[in-house]
């Protein structure tokens, strides 16, 4: 057998990285488009598959060439499970409730002009609180 032959673990390492990169690329594109699907099972499967193949690559022996792609795939593959673990929200029970009148507020808008909630009087409003653009 030739000494220059690429190890199976190396191929697995690059395969893991390809799965991780494709999945992460799609995920972040959809995040940017504010289009994350309600059912994220396929994303979870793909991320975990990337991590699993990365681990398999290390177990088989990825060689110098395949170690870094395998490790990157494991880190990226663990990304979604990590974000799921930290995504639970806790809110005070004193938050605004159905039937209550909203508080008066002011805030800067995207033109750096002061918006006053008094401007909302006389029309129904859909109000959405977001975390941030990222």
């Amino acid at each position: 057998m030739s000494e220059t032959m690429v190890k199976p673990g190396t191929i697995l390492g690059f395969l893991a990285l390809a799965i991780a990169a494709a999945t992460a690329g799609t995920w972040f594109y959809r995040v940017r488009m504010v289009d994350i699907p309600e059912d994220r099972t396929l994303f979870v499967i793909c991320f975990l598959a990337a991590a699993g193949v990365g681990i398999a690559a290390l177990v088989k022996g990825a060689g110098k060439l395949g170690v870094l792609p395998a490790l990157l795939a494991i880190v990226v593959g663990a990304f979604l499970p990590f974000t799921i673990a930290i995504s639970e929200q806790q809110v005070a029970t004193t938050g605004v409730q159905v039937g209550e009148t909203i508080p008066h507020f002011t805030a800067l808008d995207d033109r750096r002009e002061m918006f006053d909630s008094k401007n909302l009087a006389g029309r129904p409003v859909l109000m959405k609180f977001f975390r941030a653009h990222w």
């Binding site: 809110v91 605004v96 209550e100 009148t101 909302l120 009087a121 859909l126 109000m127 609180f129 975390r131």
Partner: peptide
């Protein structure tokens, strides 16, 4: 916390 509110013309949720 990501929240959507529908508010009527009198400011009631």
């Amino acid at each position: 916390v990501p929240t959507s509110l529908l508010i009527d013309r009198d400011g009631k949720v």
